[in-house]
Design a protein around this nucleic acid. Structure first.
Lengths: 105, 105
DNA sequence: AGAGTGTTTGGTAAAATTGCCAAATAGCAT
DNA sequence: ATGCTATTTGGCAATTTTACCAAACACTCT
C-alpha cells in the first residue's frame, strides 16, 4: 500500500485509539456535560491521579480535549464535540451486533 | 465506579478499539464500497493473510462486519454502516486538532 | 523563603495487541 | 480418495498499552 495512504490511516487510527479505552470514553462523556479538573475526574473514575492525567494527555494530544489552568487546578473540556456522535452508533452496534450475542466473553 | 457502569464502558471501548487500527480502518473503508473476500483485502493491505483474517474476525466479533462463505471464498461486508460517520469527525479532529500541529511524532 | 494542594513526568512491571509462520480446516475439482 | 485454493487457528516474539508508585513541577498562601 502507498506509504501516504498508510500514514493517513495511521493518523486516523491514532484519533480512534485515543477514545478506545473505557476510562477515556467515560472522561469524554463526562466532559461533554461540563468541564472538570483532574481531581474531580480522578474521584469519579477511581484510579490513580497520574493515570487519569495520562489519559487526559493522550486525549489532548490528538485534539479531542483542551486544558486550562486556573490557579492550582487544570480544567479539561471537550473540544471536539463531534466525537459524541460516535456514542449513538456504538450503542447500535452493541444492540444490533448479534455476534455480540454469540460471543463468549 | 459502579461495576455496571464500568462494564458498559468496557463494551463501548471494545467497539471503538475494533476500529482503532490502521489496517482495520482501511478494511472498513474498503468494505463500505463493496464486499470483499479475504484474498482481495490481503492483496490491498499487503500483510499476511492470517493477519487480515484476524483483523476481520475482530471486526466481526463486535458486529461491525459480517461474513458469508461462497464456495472457496469468504466475503466480508460492512454491517454497521453508521461507523462511516466516524470518518468525517476524525478528519475534523485531524484538521482542527492544533495539538496535532504541536505534536512531535 | 516555607508548607500545602493539585498536576505532571519518569520509571517499571503486568497485560494486551500485533504480525508472522506453520499447521489445520473448508470447499471445489479431479 | 488426492490435489488445489481460500481461510482460519495456534503459537510465539516483538511491540504497545496500562496503571501504579515516587519524584518533580506549578501554584497559592503565609
Amino acid at each position: 500500500m502507498d506509504s501516504a495512504v498508510v500514514e493517513r490511516h495511521r493518523s486516523r487510527a491514532r484519533v480512534m485509539k485515543a477514545m478506545a479505552h473505557p476510562t477515556r470514553l467515560f472522561i469524554v462523556e463526562e466532559l461533554s456535560q461540563r468541564e472538570r479538573c483532574v481531581h474531580e475526574l480522578t474521584e469519579m473514575v477511581g484510579v490513580d491521579m497520574s493515570t487519569v492525567s495520562k489519559h487526559l494527555a493522550l486525549l489532548k494530544s490528538v485534539g479531542i480535549v483542551t486544558d486550562e489552568r486556573r490557579g492550582n487546578e487544570v480544567y479539561y473540556s471537550l473540544r471536539m464535540r463531534c466525537v459524541l456522535k460516535f456514542f449513538e452508533c456504538i450503542e447500535d452496534v452493541l444492540a444490533f451486533g448479534c455476534s455480540a450475542c454469540e460471543r463468549k466473553s
